[in-house]
Design a protein around this nucleic acid. Structure first.
Lengths: 197, 197
DNA sequence: CTACATTGTGATCGGTGTATACATTGAGGT
DNA sequence: ACCTCAATGTATACACCGATCACAATGTAG
């Protein structure tokens, strides 16, 4: 009947791709393993071969999201000046941009419900990109454009402000067109917050 | 058989109370209308008389959460000095304290999935407490302890920092004991961000 | 070519949200 | 006091979901 071979070829990738699509279009609550299998044209039990539970799929999705976020932040630093303000500006826009473009995914990434060993992998990937921010701030310190002090203690407020702003934008609390304008104010405020003296 | 009368008396309140209990203990994903009804000792369809859908119950839950948050912020201002730094400090601790004490509920409050008319009521209640922050900052401006400028544009970075810090604490990204220590740094940073000059 | 691990199938189980028709109750108007 | 009638709770049913199991088809290594 079907011309599809018995084996799909790369079912895990197909599942992740389709899952992210419906995640983006209809939110996490509309994500169903059975529906995914249906759309891909595979039996309802097939996904369980690759993701032992629905939560495992969500964890994998969050992981890819973290990886892409890290890439986006890294890419934002290409071709930008060395001044701390410029680099922070670029990173902030990349972060918030990713957040509004992947709202539901961001929720997933910072969700509380990861299994213990999943959070381990997630934590590792999270470090992979939070380290970028730490390095950015460390550079700023060496250039004398950021106040001296323990790196983490200076970075935490910066990270909180970015994350909070992204969360507000994502949850629709601030109107989407105000997001861009408000970001200028946020960055300026953060810069004042970690300026020397 | 049962000594419980046919009518419960105040089923909506019982549902909300029980829902918040399991929300706190086992998270939003473990919240089931049928289980709630079972625990209260009522038929599976009974909740639908008071909450037309599960989402409606969640919205109501989020609403009570916002109200309590507003109360907590207001209470934090009692018996605190008039200096802007002191008042912001108190409000920030109240906010973050509420967040870590009601993690799952906070997720619900700022979730993206509210029905259009529900977001209306939620937005109204949200204003009820964000106005407190605006007033706090406005007072600071009048006292010359906060930079001049449009109120919302100064408040947004403050709000973003608080919200982001609460979100980080809630999602377990920063270790719970570091939450208190880090809060000092956050408040100091925010104060520098909106200081005059 | 043959064992064997991998991957997909089909059926089944308990659980869930929602809708509908029906039963019980209490409150307001006469 | 009675009688309506809206409000509230019940019983049942439906479709869907996640998870698990035995089994079938397929690729692969020896």
């Amino acid at each position: 009947m079907t011309n599809r071979p018995y084996h799909h070829g790369d079912l895990p990738a197909a599942l992740l791709a389709r899952a992210e699509k419906t995640l983006r279009e209809r939110g996490v609550s509309a994500l169903s393993l059975r529906e995914l299998a249906r759309e891909i044209g595979v039996s309802p039990a097939a996904p369980s071969r690759h993701f032992k539970s629905k939560q495992a799929l969500l964890d994998a999705l969050a992981l890819t999201g973290l990886e892409r976020l890290a890439e986006a932040i890294a890419a934002s630093q290409e071709g930008v000046g060395e001044a701390f303000a410029d680099r922070l500006d670029a990173a902030a826009r990349a972060y918030v941009g990713f957040a509004v473009a992947n709202a539901a995914l961001l929720d997933l990434m910072f969700s509380v419900k990861h299994s213990p060993q999943a959070s381990e992998a997630l934590g590792a990937t999270a470090h992979q990109w939070s380290d970028q921010l730490l390095e950015l701030i460390g550079d700023g310190q060496r250039r004398g454009e950021v106040r001296v002090g323990p790196l983490e203690r200076i970075a935490l407020p910066v990270f909180a402000a970015l994350h909070g702003y992204a969360a507000l934008a994502v949850s629709g609390v601030l109107p989407p067109e105000a997001a861009e304008h408000g970001l200028d104010d946020l960055i300026a405020s953060v810069l004042r917050g970690c300026a020397p003296q």
